[in-house]
Design a binder for these strands. Sequence first.
DNA 1: TTGACATAGACGCAAACTGCATCTTAGTTA
DNA 2: TAACTAAGATGCAGTTTGCGTCTATGTCAA
Lengths: 241, 241
Amino acid sequence: MSEDAFLAAYDPDAYGRLALTVDVVLMGIRDGQPAVLLLKRAEPPQAGLRALPGGFVGVEETLEAAAERVLCDKAGLSGFHLEQLYTFGAIGRDPRMRIVSVAYLALLPEAAFAAAQSNGAGLLPAVIEVPWAGEAGGPVAVRAPDESGSLRLAFDHADILALAILRLRGKLAYSGVGFALLPERFTLRQLQAVHEAILGTPLNKPAFRRRMLDRGWLEPTGEREAGTSFRPPELYRFRQP
Amino acid sequence: MSEDAFLAAYDPDAYGRLALTVDVVLMGIRDGQPAVLLLKRAEPPQAGLRALPGGFVGVEETLEAAAERVLCDKAGLSGFHLEQLYTFGAIGRDPRMRIVSVAYLALLPEAAFAAAQSNGAGLLPAVIEVPWAGEAGGPVAVRAPDESGSLRLAFDHADILALAILRLRGKLAYSGVGFALLPERFTLRQLQAVHEAILGTPLNKPAFRRRMLDRGWLEPTGEREAGTSFRPPELYRFRQP
DNA sequence: TTGACATAGACGCAAACTGCATCTTAGTTA
DNA sequence: TAACTAAGATGCAGTTTGCGTCTATGTCAA
């Protein structure tokens, strides 16, 4: 049957139902490591496990709008970097019903990441530990700050997190995505710390400075960071190229 | 309302309905340019316009399986490179109803690209003309081979095509994706032609040879291409690293 | 049989990029 | 005012890349 013939005769009730949701990875940097905000599941299935905040996609709502709504409802935030990651549609990924989920990645500067924890929706920070180098890929571990054991994630949310790291690492070199994790004005050292956290590897300072300054994305503000007990670093601004 | 409470009380009939489809970009190289296989829409809406082949996602079917099904039903092919591109969910993208579509990219070697045209499902080849350099992005034009005017694409399928080109260009340098457009055994010149077609720019021959050979992906077969009227080039095989 | 021809494939060099050790600068603090 | 600390600059060597050119190896026609 052609797609058109199918659609003309489309009777939703004649078919099993399929639900569409968005899951949002709320990512930030904490203690020099990538971190994510998770909810502790209160009810079965997978009660007690950590899960990404998510929500159903409304019939009159775009995917992006649904992700923004989750960001707003669960974290009390809006206006931050939000990009689509991937769509997960394995059959048994949610035991309750067939749920296809579009994963989004939100990038939060440190202040927003901290603010989201106190906005009352119960978001808890967890550090992402990436056991592989470069863009090799594979499972990632998640643990609560100041605890040793790793947390278990509900459903296929560990896969979503791994993909978020993979995507970030890949885009870091050629896109301005790293700036989304920094406040409006920042020092080169802060920028380097963000890159090191995402890549999971230390970087060479002079080479990093040179690369960033040569790229033309950085606009010196003329101001310097206050409150240091040493030579105060220049503050830069991200200038969309 | 929490996600769980929502789900517990979930009554599909109480909400408007939302359909999930896959659309597949069947891409190949034709005359040194990226090309795609399209269907000519027979019925309204957008009758006469070209559209990507697609289909509804079954309730007991993964997204990947749905894309493979489309590849098989519409092109009579299977076993080729297939990757998820992006999920399109704008409100008015299909005038009939709310349809969210997961776009997939299939890469076909020249022989498979040609075979798909004669498999009876009415797929017509069209050349993709990319008016922007690098990964700038923007709309792309599509025209039938040996015709001058450009074809109009149905729905948001032009956006999907543009994204396919963008994704391919981005992945070409660091992944083995280019080999999916070549037969099992190929010459370095053929490989270079594929890269040039995707990138839309000529490449330097010695530099390209060096890069490819140094990467360790190429295994010499010891055989040489027959039927040339000049020095026969060595045939290589792609060796997954 | 042999020389023209066309493309494969190798070589050499210069420019650009990257990593790295080290040096200088500009603040605070004792 | 001298010690201290991190910012920021400099110089150099190893690597990668672009590119012109040279050699190799097949076919084909005289």
